[in-house]
Design a protein around this nucleic acid. Structure first.
Lengths: 232, 232
DNA sequence: TTTTTTAAAAATATCTACATTTTTGGTTTT
DNA sequence: AAAACCAAAAATGTAGATATTTTTAAAAAA
């Protein structure tokens, strides 16, 4: 009667669970999503299941062909490139606006989330550390973006974030599990924050664009290696 | 067996029909969308109808509250302002990229669609003329945007276009039915194309931003007038 | 009298089970 | 080998059962 969220119907539960399963790789890119299996796994009827799938279609995580069912959206170097290109431009634009428009509480939010991110230490398991760093890293970038003041731009940003999530996961493991890469990121973030607070919006914009496109080459290599492994 | 499109299932038909009904004002902002009525109007069962509604929710044309059904998304001056702000920035960014990256066939497309748009004359009914001008005006802006070369950016652009559609309809009638306003737009477009082809990406960017934000004040007034009329 | 509470009834949303239609993949026929 | 056919599998859609919310109106409290 108290703690329950807004939306707790079966459609939502299935939607969230399937989305996680796809981004975590339980279902691989291109896999066919059979109704029978989905119904069993998520303990739900076809109607609600279709609705959940339908939502993921509009997020481009699943593709649908009429009368031929659903598949996990495929992944490709081409999509990776275009996705990161578009996202980098969007994020750079939002950053420029944030530097121009952000007020004191924005600055405070950026500084606070920078600090929180820097304090992630190797605690329990490596997997937990990955999750924690990821969450705080996302919070850091969100804190920056929020300065733009536009709910709609932040919404566009989220749709891009959802779409890159599977690719970003590949980069995440590569970065967090390498002391060098992690230190390099930390330095990038430090410089970024410095420029943000100096209110140089042109430099901030350019720097954010670079920050966002950096991972592309790394992810490309991982995907190519994985594709080769699959053929063998 | 020949002309049929890809997706012609009931869900799609209902989705398209309801979307049109909402943007055309058959259902007004804030209206409750009762299952019973929808099922009758679109001759379809609850399952598929929910799926169609669900899609419109992800396009922000409909809102849903769990266990309490669906409503047509409300309209407000606040949303109008933010929506056009975000869209103008996105479109300006895409324009800048198009000017930087667009090739000869892009130029040809822009010139061709400019010409086609300028040739809209008062033929049959005023309503038909409105539709034709709107379609060609959209084609004109699409031709410009396509120069950016990013499918994902064009997709983002479309999601914004869908969201502003109801507001844009208000502006459309105001503009097309006024000889002065229409001539002013024609001149704006002429200047815009001139700058695009001169490859001055900074000026093009700024000019597109202005072009996109111009309608906001007009639409604001129309909405305010309409809201007052409703209270009386 | 007016307001608040409460409980039943009505309306509505959600979900499941089953029926129908379409696709798929193998088998037979030409 | 190519085309036609057929049965199994899968997707799509309907009808009705179940659960939730909203309305209604009477009873209790102010």
């Amino acid at each position: 009667m108290a703690t329950n969220d807004e939306k707790n119907n079966l459609v939502n539960l299935a939607y969230v669970a399937l989305k996680r399963d796809i981004t975590e790789g339980v279902y691989r890119p291109g896999d066919k999503l059979l109704m029978r299996g989905l119904k069993e796994r998520y303990e739900i009827g076809s109607g609600p299941m279709r609705e959940a799938l339908s939502r993921l279609v509009s997020e481009h995580l699943v593709t649908a062909i009429s009368q031929r069912g659903f598949r996990v959206a495929s992944m490709s170097i081409e999509e990776l490139t275009d996705l990161y290109f578009a996202r980098a431009h969007l994020e750079a634009m939002i950053t420029e606006l944030a530097v121009k428009l952000g007020d004191e509480s924005w600055e405070a939010g950026v500084i606070a989330s920078t600090h929180t991110l820097s304090k992630v230490a190797q605690l329990t398991s490596a997997e937990d550390m990955l999750g924690l760093w990821d969450a705080r890293h996302k919070a850091f970038h969100l804190a920056i973006a929020q300065g733009c003041g536009s709910a709609k731009l932040l919404e566009l940003r989220l749709t891009m974030l959802d779409q890159v999530e599977r690719y970003r996961q590949l980069w995440l493991r590569h970065t967090v599990f390498s002391a060098d890469a992690l230190e390099a990121k930390r330095e990038e973030h430090r410089q970024l924050v410095e420029v943000l607070l100096s209110r140089d919006h042109v430099k901030a914009r350019d720097m954010m664009f670079e920050h966002m496109t950096g991972p592309v080459s790394i992810i490309s290599e991982i995907i190519e290696a994985r594709d080769l492994a699959c053929q063998a």
